[in-house]
């Protein structure tokens, strides 16, 4: 029992339960919306764009969770996206093992690598940490770029899909209408799992460590292991995104691991608001279509993305998600008749 509960009595418990039913309710609603989406969106092009956007949202979420639970900035998250994609793609394409095993390996390898890396670099803060993640990411990129025997180096490699994976026809993964539902559902389930984790004792511990690593040790905790676990969770999400992209495109290339992909994911997370669980996904969604529109308007679209980043950092420290929360809570107060 926590002191919050003991002192607040039943009220605290009831409030917590209400908050949980909210989360499950939202997740269920999001799942239903996703399943309905292909029937509401007629255009195949739009469904395809949305599928790509959801993969970006997943990658941005994986960056965000590192910020939210560990207080760490990563410029190498594409490494785990790409490692997942390559592990799955190479094993499946070369028929080294069954596609199911390839998929599992594509999830497990990045998770384990990130966990082990986390044990080493988790306690290094700030710029040094960002540079280390950048270095790791670029090292993997160089391997994928130069090692032709692995997957044709910089040309990339097409991954011919097996007929079925886990009994599911591979066409399902390559058609936008079904893949959109799969990617979206996985994203929703991940956000649900992450929000339950954040409320769990483990989640609370990682936030306490994020706030003050030293004092966390002075209240009896080792801080390296919890941090490393978050690295693993974060890489697992990135690897899932990488595998989904490989399934959808049937193609892997070193660009998947490039630092610019890591940087873009970080920008998406910051613009959306990494302190809020769904913020990075929101940022990725907004920027995905912003890039698209800005790219049609001018070849200098990266400057527009950069400008957005600067504006958000200066004026919206909590990102778009923070803005939305502020506006809705103000609206709720107004409806309840309180003064803002």
């Amino acid at each position: 029992m926590s002191i919050g509960e003991s002192q607040l009595g039943g009220v605290g418990v009831r409030m917590a339960q209400q908050r949980y039913s909210w989360i499950f309710g939202l997740a269920a609603l999001a799942l239903v919306l996703g399943i309905a989406a292909p029937h509401l969106i007629a255009s195949l092009l739009w469904m395809s764009l949305l599928t790509q956007a959801v993969v970006d949202m997943m990658l941005a979420t994986s960056v965000g969770i590192l910020v939210r639970q560990n207080g760490r900035i990563s410029f190498g998250q594409a490494a785990f996206f790409g490692l997942g994609a390559y592990t799955f793609g190479v094993i499946a394409a070369r028929e080294i093992a069954s596609p199911e095993l390839a998929l599992l390996a594509g999830l497990v390898l990045p998770t384990v690598v990130a966990f082990l890396l986390g044990l080493v670099i988790a306690r290094i803060p700030g710029v040094a940490h960002a540079m280390l993640t950048l270095a790791v990411g670029q090292a993997l990129y160089e391997v994928a770029f130069k090692w032709r025997a692995l997957a044709n180096g910089d040309d990339g490699m097409s991954v011919r899909m097996p007929d079925t994976i886990f009994g599911i026809d591979s066409d399902v993964f390559q058609s936008p209408a079904t893949m959109l539902v799969i990617c979206w559902s996985l994203l929703v389930l991940m956000l649900l799992a992450l929000s339950l984790m954040a409320r769990s004792p483990f989640g609370q511990l990682t936030e306490v460590i994020r706030e003050n690593d030293e004092r966390a040790r002075f209240i009896g905790y080792g801080t390296t292991l919890p941090r490393a676990i978050i690295y693993g969770v974060s890489a697992f999400i990135a690897a899932t995104a990488g595998i989904l992209q490989t399934l959808y495109d049937g193609y892997i290339s070193p660009q998947m691991l490039h630092w610019s992909a890591s940087g873009m994911a970080m920008i998406m997370a910051i613009v959306g608001g990494p302190r809020i669980l769904w913020g990075p996904a929101l940022g990725a969604f907004v920027l995905f279509f912003f890039k698209d529109i800005a790219g049609d308007a001018t070849e200098y679209w990266p400057a527009l993305v950069g400008g957005t980043l600067i504006a958000v950092t200066l004026f919206l420290p909590e990102g778009f998600a923070g803005l939305i929360i502020r506006l809705t809570s103000r609206a709720v107060r107004r409806i309840k008749g309180e003064r803002p």
Binding site: I3, Q7, P201, I219, G220, Y221
Partner: peptide
């Protein structure tokens, strides 16, 4: 002062007591 800035005070004490036990926690509070 060496505390956890952005965390609710009750949560900090709860997390600490998970590691160290709840003996005397209400006395301290």
């Amino acid at each position: 002062t060496n505390i956890f800035p952005a965390i609710a005070i009750g949560t900090q004490l709860t997390v600490a007591s998970r590691a160290l036990g709840e003996t005397g926690l209400s006395d301290v509070v």
